[in-house]
Simulated assay, not measured.
Amino acid sequence: MNESLTKRLFGYILLAVISILFLMPFVWMLRSSLMSLSQIFVMPPVWLPSPFKWDNFTRALTELPFDRFFLNTIIIVALGLAGTVVSSTIAAFGFSRIEWKGRNIIFMILLSSMMLPGAVTLIPTFIGWKELGFYDTFYPLIVPAFFGGGMFNIFLLRQFYMTIPRDFDEAAVVDGATYFQIYYRIILPLSRSAVIVISLFTFLGTWNDFFGPLIYLKSAEKYTLALGLQMFQGTYSSQWDLLMAASAAVILPCVLVFLLGQKYFLEGITLTGLKG
């Protein structure tokens, strides 16, 4: 009993130490965002601002049109999230609940696309969007979400759907239900956790995406938060207090979304399927 208690205590201490190490950059960013420039690099480090410089946030978010950057990011995130959820859930339903010739072969071919580095398809994809006249628009950042939203999302949902007993489908077919009714009324409600997981992944990935907007957006008024933050850093590279304040404001929505959805994230990522 004592040995078991000692192992558990050691495990808790180890987890606490690792958590502190991971939280250090975040804590450093927050304390720096509330300090004057002269306080940030004082040695030994000062952890509590004196006084608290709350006006850093106002100054940082008004030096550049961050309101426009926020709006652009929200538009891309909202439409991309909607497209990903709709298209990936339907595609996963087709690969897991409907029998059709060549289903597994096509799924394996699509799954193998995950092994292709993004750099391989970057240039032809960029040329394609530019030839279509969509360069410097939001279309390259939104439209792909309505065509599967990434093979990983389809794979994750397919694996989850396959844990749901087929008895439900058979009973629904006997009652005269169509495939769409089975998808909408049975599969989606039972896979809420998995859908929330891909929603979290999509939100965080799109919100923090820097490379996509950098490639496809040219006009400053169309910049997202990631590009705006980089532009802010380039303009005010020596004003670390304002840079940390802007970074904290950009990260805050991600932290709130993850805290609100962490229960479903842990539940869905295990792919447990139905609860007993």
Rank of each mutant, 00 (worst) to 15 (best):
I106V: 14
I106R: 02
F107L: 09
M108W: 13
M108G: 14
L111Q: 01
L111R: 04
S113A: 11
M114K: 00
L116K: 02
G118Q: 08
A119G: 03
V120G: 12
V120S: 13
T121H: 07
I123K: 03
I123Q: 08
I123P: 05
T125M: 12
T125P: 01
F126P: 00
I127V: 15
I127T: 11
G128V: 11
K130S: 14
E131R: 15
E131P: 05
E131V: 12
E131M: 14
L132M: 14
F134Y: 15
F134C: 14
F134G: 07
Y135P: 02
Y135A: 15
Y135H: 11
D136Y: 11
T137C: 13
F138V: 01
F138D: 00
P140M: 05
V143P: 07
P144A: 07
A145Q: 06
F146G: 06
G148K: 00
G149V: 04
M151W: 12
M151A: 11
M151N: 05
F152E: 01
I154K: 07
F155I: 07
L156T: 00
L157C: 01
R158N: 02
Q159W: 05
F160C: 02
F160V: 10
F160W: 03
F160G: 01
M162G: 01
T163W: 11
T163M: 14
P165I: 04
P165A: 06
R166G: 15
R166P: 03
D167M: 06
D167W: 08
F168P: 04
D169K: 12
E170D: 15
V173W: 13
Y179M: 13
F180L: 15
Q181I: 10
I182T: 11
Y183E: 02
I186S: 12
I186R: 03
P189R: 10
R192K: 15
R192W: 14
S193Y: 06
A194N: 06
A194E: 01
A194F: 01
V195R: 00
I196A: 11
V197R: 00
V197P: 01
I198W: 01
S199E: 02
S199H: 08
F201L: 10
T202N: 10
T202R: 11
F203A: 06
L204G: 08
G205L: 00
T206Y: 00
W207P: 06
D209A: 13
G212W: 13
P213G: 04
Y216M: 06
Y216L: 05
A220K: 09
E221G: 02
E221S: 13
Y223V: 03
G228L: 14
G228C: 13
Q230K: 09
Q233V: 08
Q233L: 14
S237C: 03
Q239P: 01
Q239W: 06
Q239F: 09
D241N: 15
L242D: 07
L243N: 11
L243K: 02
M244T: 10
A245R: 09
S247H: 10
A248E: 08
V250G: 04
V250Y: 07
I251A: 14
I251Y: 08
